Simulated assay, not measured.
Amino acid sequence: MYRDFANFIHMNKDILLGKWMEQMKEQADPAILQVTSDILYEDTSREFVDLIVANVLGTPDGSFSEKLDDFAQKVVHLGWSVHFVTRGLRTFGLLVYSEMKRQNLFIASKEKADEDIYYHFENWLSSMYGVVVNAYADSWERTVSVQKTALQELSAPLLPIFDGISVMPLIGTIDTERAKLIMENLLIGVVRNRSDVVLIDITGVPIVDTMVAHHIIQASDAVRLVGCQAMLVGIRPEIAQTIVNLGIELDQVITTSTMKKGMEKALEMTNREIVEKEE
């Protein structure tokens, strides 16, 4: 029975595809249609139909799993939600069933026979759900993992500015996981860049509480052990008031209100200064 569904789809692919795309465009999120051209939308939909057929009939080269993974990655990158994909599968399945009934391809002399046919149809649709959703979920997890790694690398970059001077600009909230990354990047970076001074810029950090200050002090102590002086720059008035009210001790950390003042101090500590060039 499953092969009957697959063969019918294969023989009537263009007709089914046209009706299916028309129905799905009516249900699609406008954001999906805005980022997907008509040609890409049609090609992706056609690929989806081919995979449905291949799941039952197989592929000549046995590459169904590889093609399914490629398709899943494509729809994830296009921003198609799992809800839209599964709804598309459901819509397509019902369309196939309706078309087969309309063409009198089901011989049902008794009510029980018709129920059996629908039972087989539901089993076929359920098996397709499992295959497609699992592939989508795996591709989504891989994508999220890659993006998470990329964001972590960008969340605590250490930038060499001058010989012996590096800067770590921090933006956003600092939690325990990110604090560990800051510590690792600082230690690895100052050794690799042979930094004498590292400026930790917290201008973009909205809140500095006891935990954040504790992590900054730990990071400063750690880099000092490898021969580098840490400097905390971007101390805004409200941050200074918070630090004082919390009773946080920053005696071992040089602090400045702006990156400009911090850079001037860092150059002074490395026996350099900025001078105006004479015309």
Rank of each mutant, 00 (worst) to 15 (best):
70 D>L: 14
88 G>S: 11
79 G>I: 15
212 V>G: 00
216 I>P: 02
133 V>I: 12
54 A>S: 14
69 D>S: 15
272 R>L: 05
246 L>Y: 08
201 D>N: 10
34 Q>K: 15
142 R>T: 06
61 D>E: 13
93 G>K: 13
70 D>G: 14
209 D>C: 04
249 E>W: 02
77 H>Y: 14
214 H>C: 06
46 R>E: 10
145 S>E: 12
236 R>K: 11
29 D>A: 04
219 A>L: 00
169 P>A: 04
80 W>K: 08
157 P>I: 13
216 I>T: 02
87 R>N: 15
9 I>G: 01
110 K>V: 00
89 L>I: 07
278 E>C: 06
183 M>K: 13
164 G>D: 07
61 D>G: 06
188 I>C: 04
86 T>W: 04
268 E>Y: 11
113 A>E: 09
151 L>T: 03
57 L>D: 05
226 V>Q: 03
250 L>T: 07
104 N>M: 14
138 D>L: 08
256 T>V: 00
108 A>I: 09
65 S>M: 15
124 W>R: 10
88 G>C: 12
137 A>K: 12
88 G>I: 06
35 V>T: 09
182 I>G: 00
203 T>I: 04
136 Y>D: 07
174 I>H: 04
206 P>V: 01
136 Y>Q: 06
18 G>K: 12
179 A>R: 08
2 Y>M: 11
246 L>A: 02
266 A>V: 03
58 G>P: 06
200 I>D: 00
43 D>T: 05
95 L>A: 06
76 V>W: 01
79 G>C: 14
235 I>D: 00
148 K>I: 05
190 V>M: 04
30 P>H: 05
227 G>I: 03
264 E>S: 07
192 R>V: 01
80 W>L: 15
94 L>M: 13
172 G>C: 13
141 E>W: 11
154 L>G: 01
96 V>D: 03
213 A>I: 08
192 R>G: 09
249 E>Y: 07
76 V>H: 06
207 I>D: 00
94 L>F: 15
151 L>N: 08
62 G>P: 09
4 D>T: 03
184 E>H: 14
